[in-house]
Every structure is written in structure tokens, then in C-alpha cells.
Write a protein that binds this DNA or RNA. Sequence first.
DNA 1: GGAGGCAATTTGGAACTCCAACTTTGAGGG
DNA 2: CCCTCAAAGTTGGAGTTCCAAATTGCCTCC
Lengths: 241, 241
Amino acid sequence: MASSDPVYLRVVADIRRQIVDGSLSPGASIPSRAQLTRKYGVGETAARHALRVLAAEGLIVGRVGSGHYVRAQPTLLPLHRWRFHDHHAPFGADIQSQGTRATWDWRTEPADATPDIAQRLRLEEFAAVTRTSYVFRGDGKPVQLATSYEPAEFGEPVAEENPRGLIPRLSALGVKITEIVEQVYTRVPQPAESDALALPAGVHVLHVERTHWAGDRPVETSDIVIPGDRFRLVYSHPLTP
Amino acid sequence: MASSDPVYLRVVADIRRQIVDGSLSPGASIPSRAQLTRKYGVGETAARHALRVLAAEGLIVGRVGSGHYVRAQPTLLPLHRWRFHDHHAPFGADIQSQGTRATWDWRTEPADATPDIAQRLRLEEFAAVTRTSYVFRGDGKPVQLATSYEPAEFGEPVAEENPRGLIPRLSALGVKITEIVEQVYTRVPQPAESDALALPAGVHVLHVERTHWAGDRPVETSDIVIPGDRFRLVYSHPLTP
DNA sequence: GGAGGCAATTTGGAACTCCAACTTTGAGGG
DNA sequence: CCCTCAAAGTTGGAGTTCCAAATTGCCTCC
């Protein structure tokens, strides 16, 4: 904390310290901005700025008319990525095995492959694909979004077949899945995603690009959007003897 | 965009749309706040607020005295998590294989296991462990931080032995690694991490908790901090016939 | 004891103003 | 053409003031 640093950073650092060292526990109230101006001898602008930074870090949350409060640090539910890949809805099976009631909606439609999807599926641009959009719910609240793309040649996953899952469905078509690859990164959610997932301000998502391979051919690719404040992803790698 | 929405959101949405649809390409300048007030008929506060939100989303970056500019969307270098686990520095080997010169520093010291580490290593609280802190550099710039913990009984990885890597080292001690588990989540970086990794404002990190298992015993656990604007993690899962 | 009303307080949005440090541009001179 | 300097403009920090919507606590009445 250099003496030339902006005053708001002094306020941020002090409050952050109290939160991190436990002096201010989850649910505890933070001084109002009027109180901060008096306590730290700063103006309202700096007080607001400090509160804004702390809120953006997810450490506090403001309630209109009431005040700011320390946020409980989220417990991140683990999603074991390879454990349920033979279920018809791996995510659903995972959180259900952890005691959360899981439901999901999906919508399937024919689409043209965007350049990105075409590349991932090694198709021509604008090739015909089948796009299936999912909303997964835990205890009734949306907790994950996913969009899956398959070459149109595999046909549309009709409603009765969908519960069978991708791997057996493609197997019945003579396509054997040999590998699943997931690429994980973090990003800012799009406004529609924030709305759909009821994300608190400042929360980023984990974005998983998952591709099913049959030998050296990609036969399905998905974009999965996972709230970064609710889940962590667990990957296991056994070592062969 | 409801008509009762704050005016700053109108500005945000308009500029975001231009960036997303390519009208404003990377490097393009954004109107200054004075220009925004005139263009959108809002006050300076709302103009600043809009710019602040866009900056927090990583879409623009402000340069003092110059203006705001559209940020190039980062190309995320893939880190193949299981490909180099038998190297002495898997991360280094990974980015080196992609053309980036990798170097790293580390520092080893005895420590007492915190409750979290004790739980992860199935040790008593405050049990003696060996803590090794790493700073990984790509082309001379820090690009990843990691802290590794081992039970103290394995001894201190002395400098000459470190290049051999964890798995052969423990193997020489009669401990056979049977599985590696990585848990991935995203979070706000701590100030020291932001400094160390030179993270732009608003960038979150991927945090990987990695544990090496020998049978049902955890024998090493690490916390790995990866800039969310530079890397993505790639996990592969072969399906057995 | 419970319900309702009211005052005080709070947050989030917003306006206007000022300032230091910095950048950019244009004019003038060599 | 190149260099210098001044003017204009920019960002980030900061202050003060106002307002709508919401919350909380206290008081009064039934």
C-alpha cells in the first residue's frame, strides 16, 4: 500500500483484509458509504469506488435500502467429468448423485455450421448440422447451459431416443466413440447467459468445449456454460502400470 | 433493453454490439466520455459507468491521456493436461512444445499443513510438509504460479533432483503414482497474483487443484494459478473398447 | 402481541465540477 | 524535413449534490 496510491484502495485493502482474516464473517454488514466517509476520511466517491471494487471481487453484495454484506464464499459443487459419460445426461446424473434434483429441457433444430463449428467438426462452412440447446436445472433453477452440434447425417435425436444418450445412439448408427476431449476456459458471461443463469454481478463462467471423437473424426461438439460461482470440474487421469 | 433501464446500459449495449459484430475491430478507438455524453445525450457519470462496465468485461482498455480502445480477444493457448505429466515441469514442456521459451524458478521450504492442505493430503493439521513455490515464465514473463505440497517424509526435492520430476522421484522412494486428479475452478485473482502475473483489470484466473495419488493415498497436492486470458485447459478421456 | 404508519437510512443511478498525469495534434522555427 | 512547444483533449481519481426505490426501526393503536 504505497502512500501515493488512491485513497479508495486504502479502504478496499482494509475491508478486504477483514473479510479474508475472518474479522468480518459471511453475512456481516459493511459500513455504509456515509459511515465509510467518516471512518476513513474520504469522500463519497472514494467510498463508493471501494465498495464497487469489493463487490466486483465477489467479496460483498449490496442490497438496496439495506446495505452491503459479506458474501459467503461459494461451495463449488464438483462435476466429475468422466464419471457419467455413459448416462443420457451426464450433468444431470452428476448433480443428482450429489442430492440435487435435476431436470432439463432441450430444443433441437437443423442449423448451418458456423465457421467455428465447421472447424471443430471438420465440416465445410455452412454444412448442415443438428443443433440441440439444453437448459439444465438443479432444484428447479437453471444451473447450466449447453449447445450441442452433430453432423446432420446422424439424424435428429428424436424425443424418445434422447434419454439413451449420445454414445449408444451413435453406436447404433455404427459410429463408435473412442475419445472425449474437453477444453476449459473462463470468460465473462454474455448478458443472456447472466439472465438465464441468474449470475451475480462479476461472476465469470467456465466454458467447456467438449468434442466426441470416433477415431480421428469429430462426431459431436458442444459448448457448455457453467456458473463459475457454483461448480468446479474434476478430471481424473489414471496412470497405466 | 427495457425503457426503464439505466441510461448507461444503453451505451454499454450499443458499444458492445459494435464490438461483437465487428463494426469496431481490435485496436479501434472508443468515443471519449465527452463524446459519449454528446452522442448519447447522457451525463459524464453514465458515460464513465458504461466505459467502466465494458472495461470490466475485457472488451475495451483505457489508456491515460489517450482514450479507450477495443481489446483484441485473446487467443487462449491450450495446455494439454495429461500429455506431459512425466516431464519434470509439465507446464514448461507444454508451452515449450508450442514455441514459447519456458523458464521457471522455485523455492522449497518446510511448512506446516494448513487445514485445507492437511485434508487434501490426509494428514493431521499442522503436520510437517514440504512446500515448493514456482513461478513459470513464458518468453521471460510470468505466466503461471504454482505451490506444491508433499508430506515431509519424502524429503526435500533437492536442486539436482528437481529436474527429474515428481513421478520418478517418488518412484525411487517406492511410491508409485496411480492417478492424477485435477479440480478446475475460476475465481478473482488475489492482488499479489494480479501483480505477479501482470493481469489486466477484470481478468479472472483458472485455479487448478492437482493431486497425485498412490493408490488411495494422496502424496502431493498443488494449487496452480493460470491467467484466464491466456490459457485453456485440455483434458482427454480415451474410452476403452 | 401484532399490524400499520412514518422517519431515517441505505443502495444504485446520475449530474456537474475539479485536478494530475498523459497523449495527440498543429503551428512555428531552423 | 525535423524538432520544439503550446494548446487541446483524454483517462483515472475525487468531491458534492440530488433522486427513486427499498429497508429498517420505532412508535402508536387495536
